[in-house]
Design a protein around this nucleic acid. Structure first.
Length: 303
DNA sequence: GACGCGTGGTC
DNA sequence: TGACCAAGCGT
């Protein structure tokens, strides 16, 4: 086990000072925002840039200020309100999550990490993010930003490599300041630092408060790691995939609350086999439905 | 553990 | 200009 710089009070102080100055004032960081608001912001932010999330988050909070409000809403309304944030199944899971919170937890988002993990759409990252950011608990919050910062500063690697749930959690837990409130702030700061300074593409090492202690910078910012041959996670393709076709189909029915005939859907993609496969998957996911009259639309608005 | 899952901005 | 990237989750 190598010595950890990020676990030292000096490192904590530097990151926290930087954060106090540079943190972006997102509305879910307002102390008046409750755990429900934090949870919604975290789910919306899964694989989606924060700047795109903010306007949608405001809409949702105004429209559905409590979990029970969202849980009562038809799925079609929820999917439509999701707009073009991407990965619309997240909207369905968030609605399911709201129903569970309303029914089993008195409309209050749980604080306990294990309980949070049992909720639909809430995984290892989101559960700890809610516990930390909403409730101030000093738990490790491990996202791609945090893993990248640790990989560079501590291990001298260019990027985070494949996630290793248990090891990553343990490593980040060992970095946290002992004081609970400080630890919670430090987790938020470390993420923000990865998002704004220690970025994936072009890190801003000139303005980095850790530059004199960074193993990656000291090693000359190598582009790959000699041991792992720099294997990155599988790059995501999009053009020509079912994912693209699903997006095109959903685009149509979002705009047509009354539903459309199949002939209208047939126009969005030339390959009939793939088009049909994408449509069936949307029906199976519960994002779309088909009425008795043969119309296709968002789930829950054709009956 | 690898894969599928949207969308738009950036260089 | 197309490849890369963005606070992951569920199967």
């Amino acid at each position: 086990m190598t010595t950890s710089y990020l676990s030292t009070p000096a490192a904590h102080q530097r990151i926290l000072s930087w954060f106090a100055e540079a943190r972006r004032p997102f509305p879910w960081r307002d102390p008046r925002t409750n755990a429900w608001g934090v949870l919604v912001s975290e789910v919306m932010s899964q694989q989606t840039p924060m700047t795109r999330v903010e306007p949608l988050w405001r809409d949702w909070m105004e429209r559905w200020p409590h979990p029970s409000d969202l849980g009562k809403e038809p799925t079609a309304e929820v999917v439509r309100a999701w707009g073009k944030l991407g990965y619309p199944r997240r909207a369905l899971r968030l609605r399911e999550c709201a129903q569970v919170v309303a029914a089993q937890y008195q409309d209050t988002v749980p604080r306990n990490v294990e309980t949070l993990l049992s909720l639909p759409g809430v995984g290892s990252y989101t559960a700890r993010a809610v516990a930390c950011f909403a409730y101030g608990d000093n738990v490790p919050v491990v996202d791609t930003n945090v893993r990248r910062v640790v990989a560079r500063v501590e291990h001298g690697k260019p990027d985070q490599g494949k996630p290793r749930e248990k090891a990553d959690l343990a490593e980040v837990a060992a970095l946290l300041p002992e004081d609970s409130a400080t630890g919670a702030r430090f987790s938020a700061a470390l993420m923000e630092f990865g998002a704004l300074v220690c970025t994936a593409r072009t890190p801003r090492c000139e303005e980095c408060v850790l530059s004199d202690a960074c193993a990656w910078l000291a090693a000359g910012k190598p582009v790959w790691d000699d041991d792992t041959h720099g294997r990155r996670p599988t790059p995501q393709k999009f053009t020509g995939t079912d994912r693209q076709v699903r997006g095109l189909l959903l685009d149509v029915v979002r705009e047509q609350p009354g539903g459309v005939k199949k002939a209208v859907l047939d126009m969005v993609w030339p390959d009939a086999i793939q088009r049909e496969r994408a449509l069936q998957s949307l029906l199976a996911d519960g994002l779309m439905e088909c009425s008795a009259a043969g119309l296709y639309g968002l789930a829950g608005e054709l009956s």
